[in-house]
Design a protein around this nucleic acid. Structure first.
Lengths: 214, 214
DNA sequence: CCTCTATTGTGAACACTTAAACAAAATTAT
DNA sequence: ATAATTTTGTTTAAGTGTTCACAATAGAGG
């Protein structure tokens, strides 16, 4: 394991830091303090320093952090020095939008294959990504050694598809279906439930008017 | 304010409970225990009981919870007894997919208007939702008294658009752009950063693999 | 009726997360 | 060179969230 146990809350903020550091580097900023970072990413400066400290002493007292070396450090932590290929399963409206989404612009991530059951989509190319028939899903995922998949199939089939993916070695699923997938403990699931997010937002509007959650 | 202070973590789980209770009711289940719920939604049963207890004593000892009355109770809590209209700003690939997404199927939420700067989209209808030119955004939002907005514009304009929305009384933004919006404290922002989610998933795969297949 | 069983609701312990505060250390100014 | 300033890294404390464990209690079965 590359690093020792980083708190989950910290891990979830790493991409936020990474992105903002890229912005700073593009703007030719040499150094940055935790206070400056704090304003931009809206995380308390003490939390930022604490987060960084899990990885060692990355800054200099009285100076701050060197943008370029910090960015390079996180590049390693976030596996951004090698290209990671992911697959997308379910080329409906949302799936198509994600095929078109430029993950590769900000990160060293790309969707290298998509799968769908609709015969008319089989063996076509969308946003530069080949779409294979569902029947080839397991074979392709094994061959391409893909271990992360974006799941945008209908809810009714999501558990079945997840089982198939797990059986060919997929280790992580970005699950856009509202179903709470049941998978082995060594498989990571990240849920993005759009309806829930919207419902939660409305709830917060009505009930937390004074505060600023998240 | 409808309810006393509900912990944020609890609030975020309410839509999950709500959805599963709907499923149970459709399946004509009369009663459910926290243990059963726990398996379905993958939240510890004690956590479920604690969550419910913030709203009072909703269950019966030795029996569990009555599905229908619990569902109706949460329906009120989650403002599901009245229709809530939201707007969508930015009809690109992702915006279009969300216009097509059937929020109204599971919830009493619908997108009632969309806005975009592209002249060719102005005054057209997509997935049954009217698209207005950006110039009419503030007027329409005021007139329709919309207080929640889905933001799917390019990053470069997101803060500017957010400011415009806030100035006409928008109280909540579901922000799909990677920019951390700066808004007054009484405005809620819920961020969905697709790149971050994918990056975090990859990080978890590499660093939190427990290697305990079931 | 009484006994047995199931399951809640919650006090208390534990775990995780955030943030205040400040000594230590490096930079910057004089 | 020295003093003033800045800003880190970390100690400590407070705040949030989760889970255990069990008394309290409702329902079911004699």
């Amino acid at each position: 394991m590359a690093t020792k146990k980083i708190p989950k809350a910290t891990a979830k903020r790493l991409p936020i830091y990474y992105r903002y550091l890229s912005v700073l580097l593009s703007a030719n900023k040499r150094r940055v303090s935790s206070t400056e970072l704090s304003e931009a990413v809206q995380v308390d400066s003490a939390t930022i320093r604490r987060d960084f400290s899990y990885f060692g002493e990355l800054g200099k007292r009285g100076y701050g952090y060197d943008v370029e070396s910090l960015l390079n450090f996180f590049k390693g932590i976030l596996n951004q020095d090698t290209l990671t290929s992911v697959a997308l399963v379910g080329v409906g409206a949302l799936g198509s939008a994600l095929l078109n989404y430029n993950f590769h612009q900000d990160t060293n991530l790309r969707i290298s294959a998509a799968f769908d059951t609709k015969p008319e989509l089989a063996n076509t190319v969308k946003s530069g990504i080949p779409i294979y028939p569902a029947s080839e899903m397991q074979k392709q995922i094994k061959e391409q050694q893909i271990d992360a998949v974006i799941l945008t199939v209908p809810s009714s089939t999501s558990q079945k598809v997840a089982d198939q993916l797990v059986s060919v070695g997929v280790k992580g699923i970005l699950n856009f279906t509202p179903v709470r997938l049941s998978v082995p403990k060594n498989v990571q699931v990240q849920n993005i439930d759009l309806t829930n997010e919207l419902q939660t937002l409305i709830y917060f509007i009505k009930n937390y008017a004074e505060n600023n959650p998240e």
